[in-house]
Design a protein around this nucleic acid. Structure first.
Length: 682
DNA sequence: CAGTGAGCGAGCTTCCGCTTGACTT
């Protein structure tokens, strides 16, 4: 009889099977096998929050196989991840498979020796950790399944709220407000350029030995005054400082930093990065891709050393193995950092498609670089005095590339001529430059993930889905630079939550929860009182707000526009029907006051978009819209009455050949909107 | 290439965190 070993991922199961051979049957649970029901709350709030766990239909097949194999096995060993969720999966497996004496093991790296050692040291399931996970699950369910229906009642159907997504939304909305109220400030900088062999520049940094702040020179007048003060001045080298500066390589990737870097360097959305990483993981090229850990297996460090010293010179190796510490809040470190499984799998020699090759190249380089020597720069700083002012010129030259040879990063190189202290310099020109302070930028996927991770909100497996959720709900959309902008409905939902459920959308809420969960995991706290303490005031507040908050579904505005449909009606009463501005899931829209008899609707006018009469119905005009997949297109505002639509952006001009609308393609080329037009042939 | 609202009150929407499906072109 064989022993059954259960892990979470099928790829991991295959690898482990190879290590431990025929006495064992290694299978996968494919993640969680039980959960709260999707169709109802599934938590008995009257009865100590008793959860009602079910086996989702998707997990049924897996559970059947595992049950059968467990019965055939001499023992069942639960080898799921060592974190909170992994412990809970082990417990759910033990319950679902009705295991008599389940053995629980954990290992921190997938090597033969680590697994063999773990198999010799089985323990029992840690019920405190399981309780901590249950508390997390139940709290999230209570928040999500109580707040979402509140939004359906007060704002619009199918909306959602939750501990994680609502904070993500709030960050985007808050940032937009910051940008809106930002007042740009004017400031000036002054630079002197000198000629000595080559030309070099020095920036004004001090007046009377006091540092000049970024915004201290506020106007052209002040800049001109300084230039006047310096009229005919002597520029003398006061001080020269030369030193070596060193730059460390970055740590290997975690899920979050991989998503951020792939977004910055490859323009991959987080979801796409994860699907490519999944493929690389399944082909065995990289370690597990959902991780918050920076740990590197000893064997990986050794093979990186071998590779680096063989492929480059000895000096390119860091000299001693370099390990990194995780800074992320709430990291659970069930896995290693993301790295190539074998450094000798050099990216160029792998047979991969374009996206896989790009992502693998990034992961490989980042890991190899993490074990390489620091880069060394020769830096020079020269202070130049003129009257009461001090200028500074800085030079930086790369002396030794070190890790930059494998993982290039941006740096400025500027050479300074050889100068001596007390030397008098030839001023070539004194320039002043006008600048304006800029508002903080909108978040993009990468920076929002970074912010959430910083607050300890969300997990490696959920960063990409969070981004998808807030876009699918129509809460945020991407602007033309792929930056996140809140929609009207997103802003309304966020404002409502911030005003009435302040605690939930506070960025510190998750951190407080995690602290409680840690205490539960350590056995210093019970999970039921913790949930009770949260839910009591939450439910009370919710009941109060049900009465207090007025619905936003009612028309937000009346207009003096008459309904064009009713205007054509024979009934004179109907001809008086006006258009109202209503607020739905997709934002504001025009609707007839005669609803439901008249179902006329139209989109609102869009600011900064030219008035173009619809060429099909000649009554509506063209407005930008987007598909379910958030691709922008241009359609008649009277949709669904008129279904005219274009992919390309229409212009106010007409085609000289056929009089159809001229459009501008995404590559800024002019094109006729009539596909049959002569100008589109050839 | 895409859809909202009201009220009648069927049945349904919704959370976060684990993990990859493969009935069909």
């Amino acid at each position: 009889m064989k022993k059954l070993v259960v892990v979470e991922s099928p790829t991991k199961a295959r690898t482990i099977q190879q290590f431990i051979g025929k006495e064992y049957n290694v299978l996968s649970s494919f993640g969680h096998v039980r959960d709260l029901p999707k169709s109802k709350l599934g938590v008995d709030v009257e009865n100590n929050f008793e959860p009602n766990y079910i086996i989702p239909t998707k997990a049924r097949k897996t559970v059947n196989i595992l049950t059968r194999e467990a019965q055939r096995a001499s023992a069942t060993i639960l080898a799921t991840d060592q974190d909170r969720e992994g412990e809970a999966i082990a417990w759910h497996l033990a319950e679902t498979l009705k295991l008599k004496n389940p053995q629980r093991i954990v290992f921190h790296e997938i090597t033969k020796s680590a697994i063999e050692a773990a198999l010799k040291n089985p323990r029992e399931i840690d019920s405190n950790r399981v309780d901590a996970q249950q508390a997390r699950r139940i709290l999230d369910r209570l928040v999500g399944y109580k707040l979402s229906p509140f939004l359906w009642k007060k704002v619009a159907r199918r909306l959602s709220a939750g501990r994680v997504q609502s904070v993500a939304l709030r960050l985007v909305v808050d940032r937009e407000r910051e940008i809106e109220k930002f007042k740009s400030q004017e400031y000036w900088t002054i630079a002197a350029s000198f000629l000595k062999g080559t030309e070099f520049e020095a920036l004004l940094i001090k007046k009377d030995d006091k540092a000049i702040g970024k915004l201290d020179i506020k106007s052209q007048k002040e800049a001109a005054q300084i230039k006047d003060d310096l009229e005919g001045a002597e520029y003398r080298v006061a001080q020269i400082e030369r030193k070596e500066t060193k730059r460390n390589p970055l740590p290997p990737f975690t899920t979050s930093t991989l998503q951020q870097t792939a977004a910055q360097r490859l323009h991959f959305p987080a979801k796409f990065t994860m699907s490519i990483a999944q493929q690389l993981y399944e082909t065995g090229l990289i370690t597990y891709h959902r991780t918050d850990s920076l740990n590197l297996a000893a064997s990986a460090l050794a093979s990186a050393k071998n590779f680096i010293t063989k492929e480059y010179e000895q000096t390119y190796w860091t000299g001693s193995f370099r390990q990194f510490k995780t800074k992320a809040k709430g990291a659970q470190e069930a896995h290693e950092a993301i790295r190539p499984t074998n450094p000798n799998n050099v990216p160029a020699r792998m047979k991969l498609n374009s996206a896989q090759a790009k992502l693998y190249d990034l992961i490989w380089r980042r890991f190899i670089a993490s074990q390489m020597a620091q880069a060394i720069f020769d830096t020079t700083s020269v202070d130049i005095k003129a009257n009461q002012y001090t200028f500074r010129a800085t030079g930086q030259m790369l002396k030794f590339d070190g890790f930059l040879r494998v993982y290039p990063m941006k740096f400025e190189e500027a050479d300074l001529p050889l100068l001596k202290e007390q030397e008098i310099l030839d001023l070539k020109k004194l320039n002043s430059f006008q600048h304006f302070t800029e508002p903080p930028p909108r978040y993009n996927e990468a920076s929002l993930i970074k912010a959430l991770e910083g607050y300890g909100i969300g997990r490696p497996s959920t960063y990409a889905p969070i981004l998808s959720t807030i876009q699918e709900r129509n809460y945020v959309e991407k602007d033309d630079q792929r930056r996140l902008r809140p929609t009207e409905i997103g802003t309304a939902v966020s404002d409502l939550l911030v005003e009435h459920f302040t605690q939930i959308v506070d960025v510190g809420f998750t951190a407080t929860m995690e602290k409680d969960l840690d205490e539960i995991a350590e056995g210093r706290k019970q999970w039921v009182p913790m949930i009770k303490e949260f839910y009591g005031p939450f439910a009370e507040n919710l009941a109060k707000k049900e009465k207090e908050v007025s619905t936003q579904k009612i028309a937000v505005e009346t207009t003096d526009k008459l309904c064009p449909e009713c205007l054509a009606s024979p009934d004179p009463v109907k001809r008086d029907n006006h258009l109202l501005i209503r607020f739905g899931r997709y934002g504001k829209f025009y609707a007839c006051s005669g609803f439901p008899e008249c179902k006329y609707t139209a989109s609102l006018e869009v600011d900064n978009f030219p008035q173009i009469i619809c060429p099909k119905c000649h009554r509506g005009h063209i407005v930008p819209k987007h598909t379910k997949r958030r691709k922008i297109f241009y359609g008649c505002n009277r949709y669904p009455a008129c279904d005219f639509a274009l992919w390309d952006k229409p212009t106010t001009k007409q085609c000289t050949q056929c009089n159809s609308l001229l459009t501008e393609t995404s590559r800024k080329q002019t094109k006729c909107s009539n596909p049959a037009c002569e100008t589109n042939k050839k």
